[in-house]
Design a binder for these strands. Sequence first.
DNA 1: CTGAAAGCGCTTACAG
DNA 2: CTGAAAGCGCTTACAG
Lengths: 314, 314
Amino acid sequence: MVSRVLNGKVPVESEKVERIHTAIAELQFVPRTAARVLASRKTNTIGLILSEIDGAFFPHMLKGIEAESRAGGYELLIHSTQGAYPNQNKPLGEHNTDGILVFPSSLDLIELRRLYAIGFPVVLMHQSPPDELSIPVITIENKDGTLMLINHLIEKHARRRIVFMRGPDEHEDSQWRERGYREALELHNIPFDPDLIVMGGFDEEQACSTIQQILKDGVEFDAVFTGGDDAVIGVYRALNDFGRLIPDNVAVVRFDDIHFARYISPALTTIRAPTEEVGRKAVQQLIHLIRGESIEFISLHPVELIIRNSCGCN
Amino acid sequence: MVSRVLNGKVPVESEKVERIHTAIAELQFVPRTAARVLASRKTNTIGLILSEIDGAFFPHMLKGIEAESRAGGYELLIHSTQGAYPNQNKPLGEHNTDGILVFPSSLDLIELRRLYAIGFPVVLMHQSPPDELSIPVITIENKDGTLMLINHLIEKHARRRIVFMRGPDEHEDSQWRERGYREALELHNIPFDPDLIVMGGFDEEQACSTIQQILKDGVEFDAVFTGGDDAVIGVYRALNDFGRLIPDNVAVVRFDDIHFARYISPALTTIRAPTEEVGRKAVQQLIHLIRGESIEFISLHPVELIIRNSCGCN
DNA sequence: CTGAAAGCGCTTACAG
DNA sequence: CTGAAAGCGCTTACAG
């Protein structure tokens, strides 16, 4: 009876409803989640698994995920693997959640296949599934964003020798960005030069020494595209050390519109992604999956070009 | 039997152990968390409740909390209240966690008292409990940190008219900082001037207009102390607009060593707090409480003075 | 060391 | 609309 009142799915006589409500208030009754979960076979919980709690985008993403989970009536369980794939003990899965959001490098393929095989709801963030698994993916327009950025450098600032700092190979976002870069060159009949593709898109020190190296090697370039973290700071430093002016001699752009982009000098031209929105959308899709409703298998969020000064504008 | 092997608390014949292990592997058996929780009356889960997922400190704090929870064998359930106190439905409590970490403005006093009354483990972050509740608190040396910062301005840079930008009243950190400010003045026999205490320590626009106002009002000052978020950017802007040089005319310092502190110009002198460590410590204390072990009721983490250029050094 | 059973605290058909 | 009962899937005394 109490259960029926609490859940409100079955009609109950209103006088009884009231008496139960006052009793609940008096006794300060709080239903045990575990008993509910066990009996109903639903955890009402969404899991979030990622490799590392890090990066400037993270709070915004989490905010979207948390808000949307709560709005949908789900709790949020978070697990970070800290680089070690948890193959033996499963932190998040059918035993404690109704579905999970999976960030890159946090779940091995065996476990992903197992979850898929048992029909457990999974949504992938910023990574594609293996071909034979139709698991929904949420990501952003990495290719288009980079295309916009590189087009801008070429069309507005007449740059033609643009260094592309690539991220780690397993970073799928970075691969799409490289395709955008190549497309932009093709579009303007600029020959692709492998010397301009360098490693180190995701770390300040690495980015700095990479740029120093190509400057020493005498590689000619008039612009640099960078990726995550503080790589762009390393680039600024290396260029300053060699007396190259930004943006006069070398334009610099960055993909993610990180917080300090407005504040460093010259202010960075970037691509801004709707990070919180991406998080929300991921949870929405996951909830649809859980409910057995239809979903989009790929949701690619549009990004925005944020023009400041490092490209040469203003 | 299976249960005994899984939990390993009771000795079991080794041949049997092996057979059970292989069976578990073959069947891909994963024990239901809910059944375990219900039977054992332990959730093995730590709850984190906060008002808003935001702020530059957040990822570091969460990283510490998550890592330490996992290390202790606990899951992490996160709930943000988004400003609305959840008085009716209890998101986190004895029904779904073994203990909770409570950030400011996320749990009302009634619920805090209720949890205390039933002996439910709670650790407060950056806020003191009401006098009659002995609930452990984890925070940082706000007073000492500010003292160090103001002492530095007075002793190394001969500043005597230091504007203190205060945060919201309910922000306990900010109150301690103000005490540190006052102590530093007293220490050097500098009279306290209420005109130098202004609102707006936690927002760029507010900070900017506040400084513009006191400049218009002709208030004399040679330094500014700021608090959270991007207030310091607003201060820089206002001073630039009025042609005041930083740090020559006005030194500027900030409490938290936010990410962009190194990158803006002039680079900010700040106080750095061991944020991840604070998160870890909070979880450690909570686990001690859960296990009924003895704990420190107040753990005040030391902070560090990070000298850059905005104070006038170098 | 182990088997059989009770019990954790709910939800949910089922019969009325 | 409602009462009584089974059952969710584990853990944990209990007796041996």
